[in-house]
């Protein structure tokens, strides 16, 4: 353990330094949105059907450039404000994988091959995973899925009981909305940071001790589950995971995409961060479901002829 301490501290600090500003950005947006925008009015306009609201959540994920770290504080706060669970979950699971930055980096990483097909595969697979997860968890109900303190605050005017300190009297009397925004921002940042720190430590330990296997596994028959495991253990940000996936030697298309589909939904760091929003049983269920769906998707992709994924094949049809 002592001999690997330099690597563990390096990986932990790098994950911490990289994620912290984005966690704060998510908390800041959630503070500003919940204090200054008429969220309730917006929520009342949302479609009642779970499928339609999930699709709306996915659309939001496609438009807003947010990684996993930005998404969770925002989703947590908006759920407290009464956002339909299905929309919140669809945004949470799809956003990190299909936002413009993630798709752009996928295009760049696959520019040697067929970037358009790679982007399409990443987008469609991630949407499918997010949609199924959101619909299944929504069906189980918010009380089963979400932590009690999030549920109890849902629909109430504000949740300030977790605020780190009372805003100063002068601030509350002169600028009550600003005071609320500041309290929510700092409170959410603190809550999610605690889980993020624990998650980063786990990811650093896993990367250090599973490093040799993560670095060079080759295209073995079990490459799909191994690549999924690599994504879960390495906890790479979704804005850069396409480059990391491409750096594995001789991987099949299916194994590479299994890495890209599972990572933004499930990794060690996220498992801890999810604890600030989900009930433990829901985390267990969503983890098992995500693994199953991605495995089935990747195995299906593996059965298709490889030439289907080359641009020349499709150009031949024109």
């Amino acid at each position: 353990m002592t001999s690997r301490l330099p690597e563990i501290t390096l990986l932990f600090i790098s994950l911490f330094v990289q994620g912290l500003p984005f966690l704060f950005l998510g908390a800041l947006i959630s503070g500003l949105v919940s204090s200054f925008l008429p969220i309730r009015q917006f929520i009342s306009w949302m479609p009642k059907s779970p499928l339609a609201s999930a699709l709306l959540g996915i659309l939001a994920g496609l438009v807003f450039p947010s990684c996993e770290c930005v998404g969770l504080p925002l989703v947590r706060r908006l759920t407290m404000k009464g956002l339909p669970l299905c929309a919140a979950l669809a945004y949470l699971f799809a956003g990190p994988a299909i936002n413009p930055i993630a798709l752009g980096s996928t295009w760049l990483a696959f520019s040697f091959e067929d970037p358009a097909i790679a982007v399409l595969l990443r987008f469609s697979g991630s949407v499918l995973v997010a949609l199924i997860l959101a619909l299944v968890l929504n069906r189980l109900g918010a009380t089963w899925v979400v932590r009690p303190e999030v549920i109890s605050a849902s629909g109430s005017n504000e949740n300030l009981e977790t605020a780190p300190a009372e805003a100063a009297l002068w601030l509350r009397s002169r600028h009550p909305r600003l005071a609320a925004a500041m309290q929510i921002t700092l409170s959410d940042f603190l809550t999610v940071s605690l889980f993020y720190i624990a998650g980063s430590l786990l990811a650093a330990l896993a990367q250090t001790y599973a490093g040799a296997f993560l670095g060079d596994m080759g295209n073995t028959p079990s490459a799909i589950p191994l690549m999924m495991l690599a994504a879960i253990l390495s906890s790479v940000c979704s804005s850069a995971d396409a480059f990391v996936a491409k750096s594995y030697v001789g991987m099949s298309q299916a194994a590479t995409f299994a890495f890209l589909w599972i990572g933004p939904v499930l990794d060690l760091k996220l498992l801890m961060v999810y604890r600030s929003f989900f009930q433990p049983r829901a985390i267990l269920l969503l983890s098992a479901l995500a693994i199953l769906i991605v495995l089935l998707l990747a195995l299906s992709l593996n059965r298709l002829p490889p030439e289907l994924f080359s641009r020349s094949y499709w150009e031949g049809w024109n």
Binding site: S111, G215, F243
Partner: peptide, 16 residues
């Protein structure tokens, strides 16, 4: 040790 563990044998594309 860190460099060796993270070795990649694939060339990065010019766009990357």
């Amino acid at each position: 040790q860190f460099l060796r563990q993270r070795a990649s044998y694939n060339l990065l594309s010019p766009a990357a």
